[in-house]
Design a protein around this nucleic acid. Structure first.
Length: 422
RNA sequence: GUGGAUGUAGCUCAGUUGGUCAGAGCGCCGGAUUGUGGAUCCGGAGGUCGCGGGUUCGACACCCGUCAUCCACCCCA
């Protein structure tokens, strides 16, 4: 029989790892809460066209990375490759624009992209993200960036850098693009093969190329910053001064270009030197045109997404609680009358709100105590045949080795008073 | 999609130019301790050497193919 294995690039998160995942998710939720974002849960699959229209048809994600399949009626559906599209769709569909309160959402969950797996890159991965709708004010950008920074800082992730850039308005970029393309043609011979191809498809990305030769050649390229309209400049200046005013450190990076088509004005990315090649921990930006492009009212918006497994990868060991003995009672019931009495006691403790465990494989007291030790419980309740005869169990403190008699008829009260006393 | 590295016990890994090389440590189960955990000692279970071909008297080792994993390119969170 063939072993059925997990899908390439899709990982199990085992119990040993879930505590660090909880820490990450709970930290993110707590801060999002503090900043007035409310949780939204949108489907993990949508009509394919939603992603094609929002992310951009010429992006790698849409061109070759989507998990797309046909529904029974022939409709093309896609497993979400990111969270913004679905959130925007829900925002429009439920007429949230008509709600007078701020429409600020956060989400958390799996995303799917058919890429070659490597360190920090999986086919099913998890993102936590936020979207802030309706506010064109630069303080909305700052608020979102601050939230991202606060979450990552709270998690004490090492060597973080926040990079930020101004992409200008859609019109600014349209005006800049031919100027850049014109320049790039003059140095095309010295660029890498990928960049020569990108010259036509997405010239802005050439600026973001990591090949040293390309970087050197494009150094004298005309800068987008020089083609920006006054409103775009002012907006960006206000974002930067906003970050300054609340103490968020950043670095300007005029080469920073996000991969998704919908970004405009502010774009940002937090990277860590502690990761491998895939070093982006979180990223986002403003996407003022997207809601309208998807059939909603003109709506300014900003958001970010962060990669949960990348954070899990770099979360310091000290960040989550070490395994000290927990206030759990292991019930060691053994012998012809002790085993059933132990099983009843186990349930009794649980109903009284006392965490209790047992290993039904163990038959001797020795093997029970070994399991209790492995499970790192604080106490073991020993119930053998002798105890049943006397109507008294033995509660053993696993740290001090002290043992106390507890009445089997008033078990929970006796046990909990000893637990509290320790 | 492209490249490189690696696949031997549950885990981490040895295995010398092909000739008792099917091994160690940890873990697991049991015993020493007939009802008291962690330490020590002793014993035991556990492997189609990723898979399929080929070369050879003989392959865990060499060759070819294949699959998987990891890392990098690309791209991105």
């Amino acid at each position: 029989m063939n072993m059925i294995k997990g899908i390439k690039g899709v990982k199990d998160i085992l119990p040993e790892e879930t505590s660090r995942w909880r820490l990450i998710e709970e930290t993110a939720r707590r801060w999002a809460d503090l900043y007035g974002f409310r949780e939204i849960r949108v489907p993990i699959f949508e009509v394919t066209e939603l992603f094609a229209r929002s992310i951009g048809t010429s992006t790698d994600i849409v061109e070759k990375e989507m998990y797309t399949f046909q529904d029974r009626d022939g409709t093309s559906l896609t497993l979400r490759p990111e969270g913004t599209a679905g959130t925007v769709r829900a925002y429009i569909e439920h007429h949230r624009a008509a709600d007078p309160t701020p429409q600020k959402f956060f989400y958390s969950g799996p995303m799917f992209r058919h890429e070659r797996p490597q360190a920090g890159r999986l086919r099913q991965f998890h993102q936590f993200g936020v979207e802030s709708f309706g506010m064109a004010d630069p303080r909305a950008d700052v608020e979102v960036i601050a939230l991202l920074w606060r979450i990552l800082s709270d998690l004490k992730l090492p060597s973080l850098t926040l990079e930020i850039n101004n992409l200008g308005s859609t019109e600014d970029r349209a005006a800049y693009r031919p100027r850049l393309t014109e320049f790039l043609r003059t140095v095309a011979g010295a660029l890498c093969a990928n960049c020569r191809r990108r010259l036509d498809t997405n010239p802005l990305r050439v600026l973001d190329c990591k090949v040293p030769g390309c970087r050197a050649e494009t150094e004298p390229a005309p800068r987008l910053a020089d083609s920006l309209s006054d409103p775009a400049r002012t907006h960006f200046a206000d974002v930067l001064s906003g970050l300054d005013s609340i103490g968020i450190p950043y670095r300007l990076n005029h080469r920073l270009v996000r991969g998704l088509d919908y970004y405009c004005l502010t774009t940002f990315e937090v990277t860590s030197a502690a990761l491998g090649a895939q070093n982006a921990v979180g990223a986002g930006g403003r996407y003022d045109g997207l809601v309208e492009a998807l059939g909603g009212p003109p709506t300014p918006a900003v958001g970010f997404a962060m990669g949960l497994e990348r954070i899990a990868l770099m979360l310091p060991q000290t960040a989550y609680p070490s395994s000290s003995r927990s206030p759990v009672v292991y019930v060691a019931g053994f012998g012809v009358s002790g085993a059933p009495a132990g099983f009843s006691a186990l349930e009794e403790l649980r109903l009284a709100g006392i965490p209790a465990v047992a290993d039904f494989r163990a038959t001797s007291l020795k093997s029970h105590l070994r399991q209790a030790d492995r499970l790192a419980v604080g106490f073991t309740l020993i119930i053998g045949d002798d105890e049943v005869d006397k109507g008294v169990g033995i509660l053993r403190d696993m740290n001090t080795k002290n043992q106390y008699g507890v009445s089997l008829t008033s078990l929970c009260g006796d046990v909990s008073s000893h637990i509290r006393g320790s």
